[in-house]
Design a protein around this nucleic acid. Structure first.
Length: 304
DNA sequence: CATTTCACCTGGTGGC
DNA sequence: TGCCACCAGGTGAAAT
């Protein structure tokens, strides 16, 4: 479901809750699709691992794990109750953190409809729950994904297998590097924005919204977009993505963060899913076409 | 090689 | 109410 702002929101939420916790037990369902790494190897790698940090790369959520020198965990000694405000004591302090290096990673891609939820074990298990990770604190991390386009992957860093998104991060890329991405490419600019090997994290919503704000038609050929327009596009992307993160992402249908809370950026969409409605700037009806196999929304007057 | 299309899934919506 | 077509935030394999 999610693009960069939604994935960032979820990764931050999960990190805040379970950083410093430990994976005590893993349950996976029988559907094979989500498991990029075989289910058994994945379970073996995860069980017992300490969660050092959770962060986002492109549209992927990366769990940094330490399976060998497991993190000191106050729950195991029974010194702490899992639900209290004392949870913060779980986080390794700076001195401890320095000593702990991740030796493996768990990579979660949410596909179209995936969710990661931190729950209590008693909370009812939603349909299409494919993974339940019982944590040492007693809570659970659940992966729910009706359409099963999401993927789970385990990487052993001792085999030099670190995860890296192929594309550049749209929030940090410089103007020259950004312009270079599109040089000599004849595909539609919209298709180029969706290509994760060029930019990592832009999906259908933010491609349409950024093209609107940069006043570029989605069907322009990437190599025919001028440098000035590309500069506008880069800034529009950065601004929109940053703003959307601040609002907790776009909740188009059922997107929720790790707490089950909805985002608010959908209220500010100018073109996405607004077919036939008046453009917020010029009142011209928004049009929908199909580009790169995806519904594509634009203002025929504002975007050239 | 670059680019486009299609298959993979379930669920919600709106027309008849 | 039921049935059907169409739509949906993603990606990678196959075809062109």
């Amino acid at each position: 479901m999610p693009e960069l702002p939604e994935v960032e929101t979820i990764a931050r939420g999960v990190n805040k809750r379970i950083r410093g916790d430990r994976i005590a037990h893993v349950w996976f369902d029988r559907h094979p699709q989500p498991f990029k790494t075989p289910r058994t190897r994945q379970a073996k790698g995860l069980e017992g691992a300490a969660i050092l940090a959770v962060h986002r790369t492109g549209k992927h959520i990366v769990f940094e794990l330490s399976s060998s020198g497991s993190a000191p965990n106050a729950f195991e000694s029974g010194a702490l109750k899992p639900d209290s405000h004392e949870r913060k004591a779980l986080r390794p302090d700076s001195h401890e953190r320095k000593a702990l290096r991740p030796d493996s990673q768990w990579i979660v891609h949410l596909g179209m409809t995936g969710r990661l939820l931190v729950t209590t074990p008693e909370s009812p298990v939603a349909p299409h729950t494919h993974a339940r990770l019982t944590l040492a604190s007693g809570r659970e991390l659940r992966f729910v994904d009706p359409r099963r386009f999401g993927r789970l992957e385990f990487r052993d860093l001792r085999r030099g297998d670190a995860f890296g998104a192929p594309g550049d991060e749209p929030l940090t890329i410089g103007a020259n590097e950004f312009a270079a991405l599109f040089r000599g490419r004849r595909l539609y600019i919209k298709a180029a924005l969706l290509n994760q090997t060029l930019l990592a994290g832009v999906g259908n919503i933010y491609a349409d919204e950024s093209l609107f704000h940069a006043e570029i038609r989605p069907r322009r050929r990437a190599n025919r977009v001028t440098r000035a327009e590309l500069d506008r596009l880069r800034l529009a992307l950065r601004q929109i993505l940053t703003h959307a993160i601040r609002l907790g992402g776009s909740s188009v249908s059922d997107y929720v963060d790790a707490d089950g809370a909805r985002g608010f950026f959908q209220l500010e969409h100018c073109v996405y899913l607004r077919t036939g409605q008046p453009c917020r700037r010029c009142q011209t009806p928004i049009r929908r076409v199909v580009v790169a196999g995806r519904g594509t929304h634009f203002c025929p007057k504002c975007q050239r």
